[in-house]
Design a binder for these strands. Structure first.
Length: 445
RNA sequence: GCCCCGUUCGUCUAGCGGUCAGGACGCGGCCCUCUCACGGCUGAAACAGGAGUUCGAUUCUCCUACGGGGCGCCA
């Protein structure tokens, strides 16, 4: 059976480093298996869902390179859910309840205070037809709960292994709100069953839901898909990673100039037994993907680790992969320039700085005017080749007696205006004699 | 409060009764090099605590501590 998976975000916010992982895992798995990857917007919560987030999530996925085969949204399938609900009512698995949200909330608090788990007591099940009629006459609107079978419900999780949940410890979930609109648990399963999702890959915050959903699949007469629940991420200090996600949003990382491939690599390798190494493509990542490698313990997300990975990725990137991006920025210099500077990049945009060192105008820093002046007189005439640097520095060394740091540091400062940077042997031919001369003389060039 | 899951170098992890407890990132040292960075090599660094079971526990069981998740007319 061909693999069919989905990523089903609710458009109530942008994607971030935490909730991108189910998208990444699903996509990678589909890619590895040659399956289909669906994007479904779970927008049944009209209060919180916003159109701008639909667009934003699409942008985030596109930037990451996670192309989807089909897209649909739940708000456009309301008749379908209503029909599915009718079936459940007929089979007696959906029953009407009349408690208000306040009443339920009070009841839960009372149960917890008594040390009991806050599970719905099925009081509505005992309501007679007359009592229901009376409640309706008072203007109460029914919401509908799914009648769970109180038995242990089990599945073999692709990541966590054999799982078992006692359905008696869970409340009968509300599937239809008092206003008639369907809720996540129901729409999600109805859709997964309808489109034939084969594998549900998601965060471990959904493991308890799984028991309910398995019973729902069965009640709907649909085959139960395979489940895989991955570990969640915590902050660098081990704290829950749900609040304060501004800088951790995908859009934010993009603005910081990180490579999408670095973000993808980090998202898919963190919390697994694979070493966090730069990968050359999404295909390479897909080949690495394996449920067996995913840990069950939460993993810490450290922004510094992501940045480090981004830098390493850049350091290993061949010229052909960035030639277009360089020319888009108005950077020439070809492969020689890229190879000279790539090892000094943290983010791609750092190339601008090195391009201005080579091609633009910079302010030289003169540490020892007499020294650089003397070095200037020893600068060989052009044409220059790759051997110009050792040839020149050898001459300067002989004339001044300077060596090591005393020799190179002032030259680097004068030539680039910076403390650190690429090999000067590679940079000097790119800078050229004209600029080099001016800078050694302390003049901006 | 109740239920589920987890805890191995600082971090991500391998391990599935007997291992010098392995790898990666980071950190230190050396090399490339007569500078900084890059890269290569190399070193230091861990079984949460306590009871059991066993000839023998990182590994199995229980308890405690800590962390995560769940307990919505959210997804």
């Amino acid at each position: 059976m061909p693999v069919k998976v989905r990523f089903a975000p609710s458009p109530t916010g942008r994607l971030h480093i935490g909730n991108i992982r189910p998208a990444v895992f699903n996509w990678l798995f589909a890619r590895r298996e040659g399956g289909t990857f669906l994007l479904r917007f779970d927008d049944t919560d009209l209060e919180r869902s916003k159109e701008e987030y639909v667009t934003g999530i699409r942008d985030d996925l596109t930037w990451l390179g996670l192309a989807w085969d089909e897209e649909f949204r739940q708000s456009q399938r309301l008749e379908f859910y209503a029909a599915a609900a009718e079936k459940l009512k007929k089979s007696g698995r959906l029953y009407a309840c009349y408690e208000t949200a306040d009443e339920l909330e009070r009841r839960r608090k009372r149960q917890m205070a008594r040390g009991k788990p806050p599970v719905y007591d099925r009081a509505a099940l005992k309501l007679t037809a007359e009592e229901k009629k009376e409640l309706e006459a008072q203007g109460r609107k029914a919401h509908w709960r799914f009648l769970l079978e109180h038995r242990r419900t089990a599945w073999d999780d692709l990541i966590r292994g054999p799982q078992e949940i006692d359905a008696a410890s869970i409340s009968d979930p509300v599937l239809i709100r008092g206003d008639g609109t369907p809720l996540y648990t129901f729409t999600s399963v109805a859709d997964d069953a309808d489109v034939g999702i084969t594998h549900i890959i998601r965060g471990e915050d959904h493991v308890t839901n799984t028991a309910v959903q398995i019973q729902l699949f069965e009640a709907l007469g649909a085959p139960v898909p395979a489940f895989a629940h991955h570990n969640l991420l915590t902050g660098a200090q081990g704290e829950a990673l749900s609040k304060r996600l501004g800088s951790l949003s995908i859009a934010g990382l993009r603005e910081e100039g990180l490579e999408p491939l670095a973000v993808m690599t980090h998202a898919s390798l963190i919390g697994t037994s694979d070493a966090l190494q730069p990968q050359e493509s999404l295909e390479a990542l897909a080949k690495l993907f394996d449920f067996a490698k995913v840990s069950r313990a939460p993993a810490r997300f450290d922004p510094e680790e992501l940045k480090g990975l981004n830098a390493k990725l850049l350091h290993a990137t061949p010229y052909a992969a960035v030639a277009n991006r360089l020319s888009e920025r108005g950077i020439g210099g070809g492969e020689a320039f890229w190879l000279a500077v790539r090892a000094n990049l943290g983010v791609f945009a750092d190339v601008d700085q090195w391009w201005s060192v080579v091609h633009g105008n910079i302010e030289p820093v003169i540490e020892d005017a007499a020294f650089t002046a003397q070095a200037l007189t020893l600068l060989p005439p052009e044409p220059w080749d790759a051997g110009i640097w050792p040839q020149w520095t050898e001459a300067v060394k002989k004339a001044t007696g300077a060596k090591g740091r005393a020799l190179f540091h002032p030259l680097r400062l004068a030539l680039t205006g910076l403390e650190r940077g690429p090999e000067l042997k590679d940079l000097l031919p790119l800078i050229g004699r004209k600029k080099a001369s001016a800078r050694l003389a302390g003049k901006p060039a």
